[in-house]
């Protein structure tokens, strides 16, 4: 290996960007602590992390959104790969990945504002999942810019609670995130 995976941190590559990692991990207790602890102790920034069980109950899938230059990106991937419970890690190509986030947002609704909000919700394709005389809960699924735009629009109305799940991602087309352990079953070229 050479070129861009060898830690060259000259000026052309030192640009900081946001990036998305998908991981398959053993569904063991403490696996999230291992991953988040690694970010903390190596001073890597994490924007969001979402996790859930897969169709195989022994394996969980994690999506991490992080920020950094090429050096940070490379170190994060290599250090995470060393964890015993991490089975697969993939840096997702934003062009070839479906990214989604779920937002649940509660608004204090004043008299006369309800219609305006409902119109905005329909433009953004958000759902109203709860409604009372003075409050409303909106649900929106989408990529991060869309969710940010929706929140920005609603700020003047008085957001009382907001929670978002963090990004979750799946590669487009025939791309499948493989469990590397199974791939190596044949044992060729192994030390």
């Amino acid at each position: 290996m050479n070129g861009n995976m060898n830690g060259n941190t000259d000026e052309t590559t030192a640009k900081k960007t946001k990036f998305i990692l998908c991981l398959l991990v053993r569904n063991e207790s403490g696996v999230l602590t291992r991953i988040s602890g690694l970010f903390a102790r190596r001073a890597f920034n994490i924007d969001s992390l979402s996790v859930g069980e897969t169709e195989n109950p022994l394996i969980s899938r994690i999506t991490i959104s992080a920020f950094g230059d090429e050096y940070i990106r490379e170190q994060i991937i290599k250090q995470l790969s060393k964890l015993h419970d991490v089975l697969t890690i993939e840096l997702m190509d934003p062009e070839k990945t479906v990214l989604r986030e779920l937002l649940l947002l509660k608004l204090h609704v004043k008299k006369g504002e309800q219609n305006e909000i409902m119109q905005a919700a329909s433009v953004f394709r958000a759902k109203i999942v709860d409604l009372s005389q003075s409050a409303m809960i909106l649900e929106l699924t989408g990529d991060t810019p869309k969710i940010n735009a929706f929140i920005e629009f609603l700020v003047p109305y008085g957001i009382t609670e907001l929670c978002r799940t963090g990004i979750t991602a799946v590669g487009r087309g025939n791309y499948i995130l493989k469990n590397i352990e199974e791939e190596n079953e044949d044992g060729t070229d192994v030390l």
Partner: peptide, 11 residues
Amino acid sequence: PAEIGKNIPAY
């Protein structure tokens, strides 16, 4: 692999 490029870039 994590030592490659961690402290010193490798050509």
